[in-house]
Computed example of a mutant assay.
Amino acid sequence: MDLERQSKPFTISPWVDLLWGAAFTILWVFVAARLYSSLLPILVLATLLYSGICFAVVAHWPKTKDFGWANRTTLLRASLIIVLVAAAPFIPAFPSTDHALWVYAVGALIALILDGVDGKLARITHSSSRFGARFDMEMDALLILGLCIAVVMSGKAGFWVLALGLMRYLFVAAASALDWLNRPLPESFRRKTICVWQIVTLMVAVLPPTPPMVASLALATALLLLAWSFMTDVYWLYERRFHHQTV
């Protein structure tokens, strides 16, 4: 009996992780509220977004299985990204010397750095999972959307920039109607590179020293690359649609 207890792996309930994730989210909310003077709207938006993460974890992660350090890192990153998205509508317009824009860009940079940390932890601890990969992917998409909103609100570019953040969600919506779009895509260096390029370009565009013309040109390039990448993936899936149906 004692040997069985000693050999049983130590696990932490996912609810514990969700609670400390909520605590970090609230902390970031108060920091953002101090910078942008909009506590209630940011708190409401952050609460709605974090509730979505809680629902996903409860619905798709086994209660008896440890959440893992890779997923915990993604959750920490998610708490920051959620507040960045919630605060994006309150970004001060360009030209502005407000340090809040710099803080926003630094927050996005930290989220980008953590994106590499969770993947490395998953490989080191041999804890890679479909849930973890999807969790990480959705946080990338949410960060990009938040940065798009921040760029629009800062006045560095027009509403067309939102296409960078909405393209992923349009693909998901199309996949709900067209089953062949749900086929797993192979690993792609091209896809990862363009994703990072999007985030970096958006972060640079938010910075006060970046002129609107430079920001718009760089973002237009990112949009063209993203559209090409999505078209490449959709074509790959379309060519294999019948094989997918017969499997």
Rank of each mutant, 00 (worst) to 15 (best):
A108R: 11
R183I: 10
D66F: 02
W180R: 05
T74I: 01
A177S: 06
P209C: 14
T25M: 00
V103S: 02
Y104H: 03
M231P: 01
V58H: 08
A227L: 14
G21T: 02
K8M: 08
L43M: 13
L48A: 12
T47I: 07
L43Y: 10
S7F: 13
K63I: 02
I113R: 03
L27Y: 01
I81D: 03
L18S: 09
L48P: 05
T193W: 12
M139Q: 14
A163V: 13
L225R: 03
T193N: 14
I194W: 10
H244R: 12
V151R: 00
T64M: 03
V103E: 05
T11R: 02
G52H: 00
H99F: 15
C148D: 10
T97W: 11
I91E: 10
Y235N: 13
L76D: 00
L226K: 08
R72M: 07
A141N: 09
G52Y: 08
Y50C: 05
F90R: 04
T193Y: 09
W15I: 14
A105Q: 02
A23F: 00
M137K: 14
Y169F: 15
G52D: 06
F171I: 10
I26R: 03
F171E: 01
L164H: 06
L143Y: 03
W69A: 02
T125S: 10
M137Y: 12
F24T: 14
G116K: 03
A173H: 06
V117W: 02
W180Y: 09
L80K: 11
T73M: 00
D17C: 15
F10P: 11
R72H: 01
G132I: 09
L181T: 11
A220V: 12
A46F: 03
E4C: 07
L3E: 05
G68T: 05
F242Q: 15
T201N: 11
V29H: 07
F230D: 09
V106P: 08
W61V: 04
T210K: 10
L48E: 02
